[in-house]
């Protein structure tokens, strides 16, 4: 039983990463009918931006006379990284995807792959081949809850993720910007007729998705402090799976599917040798998709919409 709960805790942490990345995938897909295949690398860039911001802030705090508590630095890092990565997302939309609005969807997909390669090699060129070591911002504290070990970092990661997801949910449901995003997901062509600048909504969607990816990148760096320029690839594919599994553009779906992925992976690894983890985990997901081809919350939607 303690093994079960221990795994549950770990699964929640992994699920948070997947869900945060999957949300960006899903939103861009929902609003713009576009798979941003560079999204895993956007997560990676977010992790590196967090690394740079965290390193700078730590140095600043060390140089200053007043001590800034670690968790304040962490919060500042998350906020800065999200904003900076949002700008990265806006640039990707503007330079990479907007010129392809009228192009076949395959061109956009290939553009995504190319943007991904550019981001990977760009980070490699700027940061060098050695892995980046994420500064330790908060002291790790482990709590023993009836034999289950929970660290303060894991609690923080899951809490921050949930707060961000709830904030996103409220934004999309309650604000006029969120309303415009939902309208765009339904029928792209009519949105400008309402006086809504569709380009701004497209940019906003990318900004939010990239910001969430940066938060995942920062949280990942806190949990696993070693970064490399190719870390986003596998995460990207898995988050893509979660986005599809959740259903087109569904925030709740992407969140749940992200956590489900975390659970399946961790629990498969509990039973089977770790070399077989993804093989079995993704076979299970493939099976789920055969029964629910539109994912959990996706409606069989005609593909009349275009970016």
């Amino acid at each position: 039983m303690t093994v079960f709960f221990q795994s549950l805790v770990n699964a929640l942490q992994w699920g948070s990463f997947y869900a945060l990345i999957a949300l960006g995938y899903s939103m861009v897909y929902g609003v713009l009918m576009l798979f941003n295949f560079a999204h895993g690398d956007v997560f990676m860039v977010g992790a590196y931006i967090s690394f740079i911001v965290a390193t700078a802030l730590t140095a600043l705090a060390a140089a200053g006379t007043i001590a800034i508590p670690g968790w304040v630095v962490l919060l500042l890092t998350i906020v800065c990284a999200m904003m900076l990565n949002a700008i990265v997302g806006i640039i990707i939309e503007r330079v990479g995807y907007r010129p392809l609005r009228e192009a076949p969807r395959a061109s956009a997909a290939i553009t995504g792959l190319m943007i991904g390669i550019i981001l990977e090699t760009g980070v490699l060129a700027i940061m060098g081949a050695q892995r980046a070591k994420f500064p330790s911002l908060i002291q790790s504290v482990t709590y023993d809850v009836g034999g289950v070990f929970i660290t303060n970092k894991k609690i923080m990661i899951v809490l921050v993720s949930i707060v961000l997801m709830l904030a996103l949910d409220q934004f999309v449901k309650k604000t006029k910007w969120g309303m415009a995003m939902r309208a765009m997901a339904f029928d792209y062509t009519v949105v400008p007729l309402m006086g809504v600048p569709a380009n701004v909504i497209a940019a906003l969607t990318f900004a939010i998705g990239s910001g969430l990816a940066a938060s995942a990148g920062c949280l990942f760096g806190v949990a696993y402090p070693v970064l490399d320029p190719y870390m986003g690839i596998v995460f990207g594919w898995k988050a893509f799976v979660a986005a599809i599994l959740g259903g087109r553009g569904s925030i709740l779906g992407a969140t749940l599917a992200g956590f489900l992925l975390g659970f399946i992976e961790i629990f498969v690894a509990l039973i089977f040798p770790s070399t077989m983890r993804d093989f079995i985990a993704y076979s299970i997901i493939l099976l789920i998709l055969t029964f629910r081809p539109h994912g959990f919350f996706g409606e069989p939607h005609s593909a009349r919409l275009r970016l």
Partner: peptide, 12 residues
């Protein structure tokens, strides 16, 4: 926008 309420359509 069928996924939006009447209210939301008007406000949009």
């Amino acid at each position: 926008f069928g996924n939006l309420t009447v209210k939301e359509n008007l406000h949009l």
